[in-house]
């Protein structure tokens, strides 16, 4: 298939970026989106131009490294997948594809389509864990956990930290990401000890980093490659309110 690509090129964090247009032909419909980008880059190198920089790693939808805002959607026009799992058969021959980096104040562009998502790490580092040291923990079966709770915790824990929720949100809010981690631990007995502090510090860090506020549009849920539900956001709101009220 033949395609026209409009790709955001930006030499560095402080440089102004702009769209460049590329034509590419002979792309197999069986190739993945990132393989199409590989082909483009090989062509650019052959022509002595600089290849397009983009983040990617596992190419099987689990590491959360790939991003890309493709024709107005994070991870492109297919549901429940990451960009590396997107295939070219989802596009039409002759189509123009616009590829942008994810845009949010806390996600500055590093180069071209590569963005800095360390803000998400900063939120986890503020309290997104259970404070146990190695060793000295009870037997794994000492505390039974209701299967339903374990399953709900797993649903939330499936988050790959890609930031598509932030990219999709009209407010660049990180609520789905934060609430997934808060929910995972709030649902498990091991996480309850620090639950109040955790929700308070993580929300404070999220605000401090300049993410937007949630307006319950739920674009995050629509675009999340792991289909994490906004019920996690409600759970976080509930726990936050509880932590406020009980002091």
């Amino acid at each position: 298939m033949d395609l026209t690509l409009k790709i955001w090129r930006q030499a560095g964090p402080t440089v102004k970026g702009k769209f460049e247009q590329y034509s590419i032909s002979g792309i197999s419909t069986d190739s993945s989106f990132l393989e199409m980008m590989d082909v483009l880059n090989e062509e650019l190198i052959g022509k002595g131009e600089e290849p397009v920089a983009f983040d990617h790693d596992c190419r099987e939808g689990i590491c959360g490294m790939c991003s890309l805002y493709i024709n107005g959607r994070p991870h492109g026009p297919d549901g429940g997948i990451t960009t590396c799992q997107l295939h070219m058969r989802k596009f039409k021959d002759g189509e123009t594809i616009t590829i942008e980096p994810w845009r949010a104040k806390p996600f500055p562009v590093i180069k071209d389509l590569i963005i800095d998502r360390s803000a998400l790490d900063a939120i986890i580092q503020s309290g997104g864990y259970i404070s146990v040291n190695t060793g000295g923990v009870p037997d794994a079966n000492a505390i039974p956990i209701a299967r339903e709770d374990a399953e709900l915790a797993m649903d939330a824990a499936a988050c790959i930290g890609c930031g598509a929720c932030v990219a999709a949100c009209k407010n660049a809010s990180a609520m789905l990401f934060v609430s997934a981690k808060v929910s995972q631990f709030a649902l498990l007995p091991q996480g309850k000890t620090e639950a109040k502090d955790r929700v308070r510090t993580m929300v404070a860090k999220m605000d401090e980093l300049g993410f937007g506020n949630c307006t319950n549009t739920y674009a995050c849920e629509v675009e999340c490659p792991k289909e994490i539900k906004v019920t996690n956001i409600a759970r976080m709101n509930r726990h936050f309110l509880g932590a406020k009220v009980s002091g």
């Binding site: 259970i130 923990v137 794994a140 039974p144 209701a146 299967r147 374990a150 091991q190």
Partner: peptide, 22 residues
């Protein structure tokens, strides 16, 4: 065995049976 204990304490949501055990 200590690995499993450690991971459960960290909040790793391992699959469980209906009785709540791993």
């Amino acid at each position: 065995n200590s690995i499993i204990d450690q991971c459960v304490a960290q909040g790793v949501p391992f699959a469980r049976e209906y009785g709540g055990l791993l």
